[in-house]
């Protein structure tokens, strides 16, 4: 888990007229990780994935998958990476059967048995032209193609978008089966569905306005953040009072609620030791964490980037 299979350094992309989609992004996905990329709409997630796949040219910086710029990599390397785009269309005249036969020629590791199993699980009609299938079915076909090629790296842009809950569950199960085949597979995916992300991801990265706001192992991220509520004995929060590691605060009379980054195990205990204060501490779910971070003032992100636990092991 030490070597990165996906690495972006100072990656930047601006679309005309002056829309900064990705702005100096650094990203490192370790081998074997299931890395979930989250962020608000327009945060630059899809553009980042397209830059990694060589579908767009970066204005600045580098994007490497499996150690090279995937656009110029030889076929042997390219066939170890598959990609499903959020807005991707499949050749609508072809049937899923024809497309799978085509893929079996393009990918040396194509797994027909796994593809057949997924088709059965997804209950797909593979004899109809893809253009006549629903959007959800087309998405399932795209995912089957990406997973049954047995790549080392899978990049998925909102794979569950537009799928019903049952299909989403099937998709997650397919991903888990894919990951559990014994090979050291790496998955990088973007999503808005945090429940799915919590179920399969072991690393996450928060993107905002084209930058990586925070990234690291999921456990460390969740364990390193707390919501701390402090109630003062007076009628208001004393001016100048600040909790160590405070990232975001809200005050309501004598009540201060803050999101705190834990850098020291005794950080909250020291507050609780003060008799005049009533201090309670709550762990944060991923969704809480996401909302708290995304609502934060983007100008004060520097301290987040420099926190000791955001970096990968």
């Amino acid at each position: 888990m030490n070597d990165a299979v996906i690495e972006a350094i100072d990656l930047s992309k601006t679309f005309r007229p002056a829309v900064v989609a990705v702005n100096g992004l650094d990203l490192r996905v370790p081998r074997g990780a299931v890395y979930g990329l989250i962020g608000r709409n327009g945060a630059g997630k899809s553009t980042t994935l397209r830059l990694l796949m060589g579908l767009l040219r970066p204005d600045r910086g580098t994007a490497h998958v499996l150690g090279s710029d995937i656009k110029d990599a030889p076929r042997e390397t390219r066939q170890r990476v598959t990609y499903v785009s959020q807005e991707q269309q499949l050749p609508w005249r072809m049937t899923a059967d024809e497309l799978m036969a085509y893929f079996s020629q393009l990918y040396d590791q194509w797994d027909t048995a796994f593809a057949t199993d997924l088709v059965r699980r997804f209950d797909l009609d593979t004899t109809r032209p893809l253009g006549t299938l629903s959007g959800g079915d087309q998405r399932r076909v795209a995912v089957i193609l990406a997973l049954a090629a047995r790549p080392d790296v899978v990049i998925l842009d909102e794979p569950a978008a537009g799928l019903d809950p049952v299909s989403r569950r099937q998709l997650i199960e397919a991903m888990i089966d894919f990951l559990g085949d014994g090979g050291e597979r790496t998955v990088l995916f973007s999503t808005h569905i945090l429940a799915d992300l919590e179920r399969v991801a072991d690393h996450i990265g928060f993107m905002d306005r084209g930058r990586m706001m925070l990234s690291g192992p999921l456990d460390a991220l969740q364990g390193g953040m707390r919501r701390v509520q402090v109630i003062f004995s007076g009628d208001r929060v004393p001016s100048g009072f600040e909790i160590p590691g405070e990232l975001r605060r809200r005050t309501d009379g004598p009540v201060l609620t803050a999101i705190v980054r834990l850098t020291d195990p005794d950080q909250v205990n020291r507050l609780q030791a003060i008799e005049e204060l009533r201090v309670t501490e709550h762990s944060l779910g991923l969704e809480d964490l996401f909302i708290e971070l995304m609502e934060r003032d983007p100008h004060s992100m520097g301290d987040l980037q420099s926190s000791p636990w955001w970096q990968h092991a």
Partner: peptide, 14 residues
Amino acid sequence: MDGTEEFSFALPPG
């Protein structure tokens, strides 16, 4: 015409 440029460009042959 088919909107499949992303799909095609991501395939191994390039």
